[in-house]
Design a protein around this nucleic acid. Structure first.
Lengths: 200, 200
DNA sequence: GTAACAATTCAATAGGTGTTGAATTCTACA
DNA sequence: TGTAGAATTCAACACCTATTGAATTGTTAC
């Protein structure tokens, strides 16, 4: 029987709620995640979740944020020899997805983008503004918006196939091989000729 | 005031329900689609939907089925000169997605695969059995399972980015240009060397 | 030490969901 | 023509949801 009122000592429940939420959103998506389940996992009353975060949607937006800042991490990847940029990019994406927390956030974003307009907007914004800007600045290509889109298709496709749908053998492959397989795709989307190899 | 009991004449409501369901699942995903809304769009009582299809999940499974049979359509695409196979494949995928009904089914599948285990299984099965078999048979490559997976990532990534998230400029591009951009990716995933261009 | 405030729970509310059972009207077949 | 069955609606059920308001307990600043 839990008692009412404030607990003694300093409390870490706010973060516990955030962690539970991130995990659940990542695993179940937005709709299937219930505030009750989050509260339960955090060992707390549902009303406390609302008290801290206002609403389910605000909780989602607070908790699902990129596990990295594109404008901080991309420049270093895009700089350097052009021939290796696809591999460096692939290595970063695949490596980042190895981290459990980062993966939760990414799958959560992709899962939620499928049904939540807000989440779709986040993803759209991410791809077509932040990644776009980094590519335009870092590579000096003129059709950076399109290139950012194409890179985006391969990234979300990878997340969906490897982690959400978990198709085999891709899901069980070790990171290095995945990097090797998709690096050339990023290479072409980032700096290669975009039309047929012949023309353009 | 609609009257009770059977209507006169032959009825097409069963298909009307299927169409409404397909549209709604495609646009809103599984969770957000309600039986009441489907019934409403089909001009019918919610109970009739259940009466015809048994349950929401069975309705989903009945209605969301591939708009084409891979084993029938892929062989013709994979046969022929190897250099053009990527483009032929891209043309087929992108062209198929131009059809409104087919697109609904595909987005519905991808959307639902994000949250419904059954739908994820469908997609997994589709990619790793049916597409796999077609590739193995049609191309005679040995790592056909992996190639099918990689092709799958690019297909679902395209569906998600272009139609679900609708990122610009990709969403507004005309089909021919999309084909030109992604064809080389399919080309490599289908018959190209899978590791770095150098080795393999 | 007391007043403000933060953390926490409880109980309730209002609304939505898929699904069921019975009732009614029509069709098809004997 | 009669009767089995199909198509259809209505009303209800049982359940689950996010959210709210009030009550309680602890902490912090004066």
């Amino acid at each position: 029987m839990t008692t009412r009122g404030r607990r003694a000592g300093t409390s870490r429940t706010r973060e516990a709620i955030a962690e539970a939420a991130r995990r659940s959103f990542g695993e179940l998506g937005y709709e299937r995640t219930t505030i009750r389940a989050i509260a339960n996992e955090a060992g707390v009353d549902p009303a406390l979740v609302i008290h801290f975060y206002g609403s389910k949607q605000q909780l989602f937006l607070s908790v699902i944020d990129l596990p990295f800042a594109p404008e901080e991490v991309l420049p270093a990847i895009l700089a350097g020899d052009r021939d290796g940029v696809g591999e460096r990019f692939a290595r970063f994406v695949v490596g980042m997805l190895e981290d459990e927390n980062a993966r939760s956030v990414m799958t959560g974003m992709v899962r939620a983008a499928s049904t939540e307009a807000e989440a779709a907007a986040m993803l759209r914004e991410l791809i077509s503004r932040r990644v776009f800007a980094a590519i335009a600045d870092g590579l000096g290509v003129d059709d950076a918006d399109l290139r950012a889109n194409l890179v985006g298709t391969q990234v979300v496709g990878l997340v969906l196939a490897r982690y959400v749908v978990a198709v085999e053998p891709l899901a069980s492959l070790d990171a290095d091989r995945v990097v090797a397989f998709i690096a050339p795709t990023f290479q072409r989307y980032l700096v290669g000729p975009l039309s047929e190899p012949g023309k353009a």
